[in-house]
Computed example of a mutant assay.
Amino acid sequence: MNPVAMNPVPMNPVPMNTVPTKTLSTLDREHAVELIQQAYADGRLGTAELELRIEQALTATTSQELEPAVADLPQVEKAEETVRLESVGGSVTRKGDWLVPRRLRVESEYGRVRLDLSQAHIPHARVDIELWLAYGAATIILPAGATADADGVRTDWGRVSCKAPGRPRPGAPHVRVTGELPYGRLTIRNARA
Rank of each mutant, 00 (worst) to 15 (best):
Asn7Glu: 01
Met16His: 08
Thr18Asn: 09
Thr18Ala: 14
Thr18Pro: 04
Pro20Ile: 02
Lys22Thr: 08
Leu24Asn: 10
Leu24Trp: 12
Thr26Arg: 15
Leu27Glu: 12
Asp28Gly: 07
Val33Phe: 10
Gln37Tyr: 06
Asp42Asn: 02
Gly43Gln: 03
Thr47Asn: 07
Ala48Tyr: 07
Glu49Ile: 00
Arg53Tyr: 13
Ala57Glu: 03
Thr62Cys: 06
Leu66Ser: 00
Glu67Asn: 01
Pro68Asp: 05
Pro68Cys: 04
Ala71Leu: 11
Ala71Ile: 08
Leu73Tyr: 13
Pro74Cys: 08
Glu81Ser: 09
Thr82Lys: 15
Ser87Gln: 09
Val88Ala: 13
Gly89Glu: 08
Ser91Asn: 11
Val92His: 09
Thr93Met: 14
Leu104Gly: 11
Ser108Lys: 04
Tyr110Asn: 14
Leu117Arg: 00
Gln119Tyr: 08
Gln119Asp: 04
His121Leu: 10
Ile122Tyr: 03
Pro123Asn: 05
Ala125Pro: 05
Ala125Ser: 14
Asp128Leu: 13
Leu133Gly: 09
Gly136Val: 02
Ala138Glu: 09
Thr139Asp: 15
Leu142Met: 04
Leu142Trp: 09
Ala150Phe: 13
Asp151Ala: 15
Arg154Ala: 11
Arg154Trp: 14
Thr155Val: 14
Ala164Gln: 02
Gly166Pro: 03
Pro168Arg: 11
His174Leu: 07
Val177Arg: 14
Val177Pro: 11
Leu181Thr: 06
Pro182Gln: 06
Leu186Tyr: 12
Thr187Ala: 13
Ile188Ser: 02
Asn190Thr: 06
Ala191Tyr: 11
Arg192Asn: 09
